[in-house]
Design a protein around this nucleic acid. Structure first.
Lengths: 199, 199
DNA sequence: ACCTGAACACCGTTCAAGT
DNA sequence: ACCTGAACACCGTTCAAGT
């Protein structure tokens, strides 16, 4: 029976879960599957696209239910994401890569965006708030995991995370009167244009 | 004349700036400095601590001035950070590692924390707000850089970033009546304890 | 004090050739 | 369609030995 692509992704996710990114090499993955390294390149384009699919798998079991109370649903969802990703070494980094390269590929983030809409956040602010919250979840997970791998303490990490979430959600719950921001934007905009042309 | 540790860090930062993480190898760095790979290990403990020091260097030239208007200073500072890190390929990831492993080593983040205090954010919320904002800056930079490296479009990235900043700062400017959050915290706390014991 | 030589145990990716 | 063999051009880290 030939190797299936799903088998490749599953085994890669399993390898990440057990040993982290350092041991998730194409060669190690191949030997785990009983094939030669080159065989993997028939199933995936390269290691990066493999990682994007692994990120998807890591969050696949997080339920996306709705209760009618958006703020509470968001808090529940974020806690579930943290609980799912934290035990996977380098999970924060891998999921962040997935979100960067294909924000809609991970179902759970699409759902988060919806819940933020339900909260009454409209238009451009909805995308901005989603990014803000996703960066905060994944950033705080990655930081904690980096510290763990380095043998440093991580006390209070989850409490600090929850406070950060509260700071954002308290704001989003109420109607906004946002009108400023213009001044600071200028030079950043210039940088972006330079970089975007290079693409 | 023997090699100095500063020379090693400077050359590493230069290599990152020009070619990104993929070309910042200990071997490439050594040959750039005209020495054998092993020589580097007399100057730095390993590659990770090298990267933490490189992160420091990338942000070393961002000025930390105060004007008396904290909200404006924060916006200016964040734009300056973005402008400094964005042109350095993989800069977002490297600086995030530095912030995770040693949050006080980068002067600019210590200054940010101070400005947030000036804004009237007290106690635990000050650390939480700093983390939230730093994760947002570095997360949005890393996402944009990942997309650039993959050849994907990054239109509107800086506008989205600015909106995220505005969402947070609008809230922090005003006094808070935060009291909830408890419910969602529980299970996360459990996860943390498990992980922290494993360390 | 500072570095070389040389090794150890690895990487990701490509591609002709096999079945 | 799916995989092997074999190569290409690399990695980080260690450590005896040299100067």
């Amino acid at each position: 029976m030939p190797l299936s692509t799903d088998e490749v992704i599953d085994t890669a996710a399993e390898l990440l879960r057990r040993h982290g990114l350092a041991d998730l090499s194409m060669r190690r993955l191949a030997s785990e599957l009983g094939v030669r390294p080159g065989a993997l390149y028939w199933h995936v384009e390269n290691k990066q696209t493999l990682l994007v699919r692994v990120a998807d798998r890591v969050l696949a079991d997080v339920p996306t239910t709705t209760s009618g109370a958006p703020a509470r649903d968001i808090r529940r969802l974020l806690t579930a994401i943290r609980t799912a990703v934290l035990p996977v070494p380098d999970g924060g980094e891998v999921v962040a890569l997935g979100y960067a390269l294909d924000p809609t590929s991970v179902q759970v983030f699409v759902h988060l965006r919806r819940l933020i809409g339900d909260l009454g956040v409209a238009g451009r602010d909805r995308a901005a708030a989603t990014d803000l919250i996703v960066h905060h979840v994944l950033g705080s997970i990655a930081a904690q995991q980096d510290r763990q791998l380095a043998g440093l303490p991580t006390r209070g990490a989850s409490a600090a995370f929850d406070r950060g979430v509260a700071l954002v959600l308290d704001r989003l719950g109420r109607p906004t009167e946002t009108t400023e921001t213009a001044g600071a934007t200028e030079s950043t905009e210039t940088t972006d244009r330079r970089q975007e042309e290079a693409t």
